[in-house]
Simulated scan of single mutants.
Amino acid sequence: MTEIPTTCVAAVYSEIEPEPQLKDIEKFMCDHGADPVLDVSSEDLESRVEAIIRELRRVLKDSFLEGEMEMFLNSVMSLILIVPEDKLNRPVLNFSEAIVNANLPEKYGPMKIRVLTNLIYVVPEHANTEKYRILIDLIKCARNHRCINTVSVGINQVKLWVKEWNVSIEQIQELYRNMHEAYAAIGDSCIINSINDPNVFLMDHLLLLEPVKMLEGENIHNLLKIFVFSRLQDYLEFYSKQKPFIESSGVKHERNLTKMRLLTFILIAESQKELTFDAIEKEMQISADDIESFIIEAVRTKMIRCKMDHLARKVIIDNTEQRSFTKQHWISLKEKLEAWKFNLTMINSHFHTLAN
Score class of each variant (00 low, 15 high):
293 S>M: 10
304 I>Q: 04
238 F>C: 03
245 F>K: 09
259 K>C: 01
94 N>C: 09
204 D>Q: 02
6 T>L: 14
150 T>W: 11
306 C>I: 03
28 F>V: 01
55 E>R: 10
347 I>V: 13
153 V>S: 05
209 L>E: 11
293 S>T: 12
259 K>P: 00
51 A>H: 04
315 V>C: 03
2 T>N: 12
113 I>L: 11
194 S>L: 01
125 E>H: 11
313 R>Q: 15
7 T>I: 12
63 S>L: 08
104 L>C: 11
196 N>P: 09
262 L>I: 14
176 Y>Q: 11
200 V>S: 05
319 N>V: 01
243 K>W: 01
306 C>D: 04
221 H>I: 02
180 H>V: 00
197 D>H: 10
224 L>C: 08
57 R>P: 00
288 A>G: 00
256 N>L: 04
108 Y>N: 08
69 M>T: 03
159 K>C: 06
345 T>S: 15
106 E>V: 14
7 T>M: 05
251 V>D: 07
65 L>A: 10
325 F>M: 03
260 M>V: 01
36 P>F: 04
296 I>A: 10
160 L>N: 15
141 C>H: 01
316 I>W: 06
57 R>I: 09
140 K>D: 05
48 R>Q: 10
21 Q>W: 04
327 K>W: 13
219 N>S: 14
178 N>D: 14
240 S>T: 08
3 E>K: 14
249 S>F: 07
152 S>I: 07
208 L>W: 00
154 G>V: 10
333 L>F: 12
284 M>G: 00
160 L>P: 00
271 S>Y: 13
227 F>K: 07
259 K>H: 04
242 Q>G: 01
356 N>K: 13
154 G>F: 09
231 R>A: 08
10 A>R: 03
179 M>Y: 15
309 D>M: 08
323 R>C: 07
34 A>V: 03
69 M>W: 06
314 K>T: 04
223 L>D: 09
265 F>G: 01
154 G>L: 11
147 C>Y: 05
183 Y>F: 15
180 H>S: 10
66 E>M: 13
315 V>L: 03
205 H>Y: 11
149 N>T: 13
189 S>R: 11
249 S>D: 04
257 L>N: 05
215 L>C: 03
216 E>R: 13
